[in-house]
């Protein structure tokens, strides 16, 4: 048994063997189920991505309008209320919010699957909402500061001096400029959603990579932990690339270069 698992060789030798396998798409096998780690990941990665994307959309759907309104009504009751909500959003532990929502909707009102799990949209909506809430606080804060930054620019004043309608000034000129930092920062924060997803998958029994990782940690299934951690590193790199791409795409200075 020890021989088959390779436990008789020193750890660093095993690590480099594993690393060599990684480049050939071989992440090793779980010593509990004997299933290839790559198979587990391939099965679970799409579910985690599905959850993260839905959560990301929720965070933008909640956070973006909140931040815009706060910026437009700067230093008024509306602004303070919106930012209070945002601060509340970042202060709630999302796993607790998940449990409470399970109780309210699943148990008390009996509207959805209380035990969680994986399936149709009724399984996705609560975990995605919870995942999105935490990030929406951050989203609305950075939207607000990006909008405030842009709204004080000279070209906004110039747009008003042209006699443009206020909604054109805000939603065409200000928002399109603010979109550059907002999109970049949002994509840079995307990895935080992956972190949140681990916890949320556990709360809602969502069979993604996070749940697999927690189970692996509890059973000391090291190759599974290693493989999933590696997968998260890849996701982080992709998120950073998305941030760079969105920056270049939204900013004409990069898109068209300097012609002078």
């Amino acid at each position: 048994m020890r021989n088959a698992l390779g436990l008789d060789r020193p750890p660093h030798v095993r690590y480099f063997e594993w690393l060599g396998g990684v480049f050939q798409g071989d992440l090793g096998r779980s010593w509990i189920t004997n299933r290839p780690v790559s198979a587990t990941i391939l099965e679970r990665l799409p579910r985690t991505i599905e959850l993260c994307l839905a959560g990301f959309l929720f965070s933008v759907a909640i956070g973006l309008p909140l931040g815009i309104v706060a910026a437009l009504k700067r230093k008024t009751k509306t602004d303070y209320t919106a930012m209070g909500i945002a601060l509340f959003g970042v202060s709630i532990p999302n796993f607790w919010l998940g449990i409470m929502l399970i109780f309210i909707f699943g148990v008390w009102l009996g509207w959805g699957p209380a035990t969680g799990g994986y399936g149709g949209p009724e399984y996705l909506i609560l975990p995605a909402l919870v995942l999105g809430t935490a990030l929406s606080g951050t989203t609305s804060r950075l939207t607000r500061s990006a909008m405030l930054d842009v709204l004080s620019q000279d070209y906004i004043r110039a747009a008003r001096a042209k006699g443009l309608r206020e909604r054109t000034v805000v939603y065409t000129h200000a928002l399109k400029n603010a979109a550059i930092p907002i999109a970049t920062l949002l994509f840079m924060r995307l990895p935080w959603i992956f972190g949140g997803a681990i916890v949320i998958e556990m709360v809602f029994d969502w069979p993604g990579m996070g749940l697999a990782m927690i189970n692996a940690i509890h059973t000391s299934d090291f190759l599974v932990i290693q493989g999933i951690a590696l997968m998260f590193v890849v996701l982080v790199i992709i998120a950073n690339m998305l941030a760079d791409i969105s920056y270049a795409y939204l900013n004409p200075r990069i898109r068209y270069g300097m012609r002078r």
Partner: peptide, 15 residues
């Protein structure tokens, strides 16, 4: 800063 702290922490504790 770009790495999710929770993922790294979980992996660390796993080992």
């Amino acid at each position: 800063l770009s790495f999710p702290g929770l993922v790294l922490a979980a992996a660390f504790i796993g080992f």
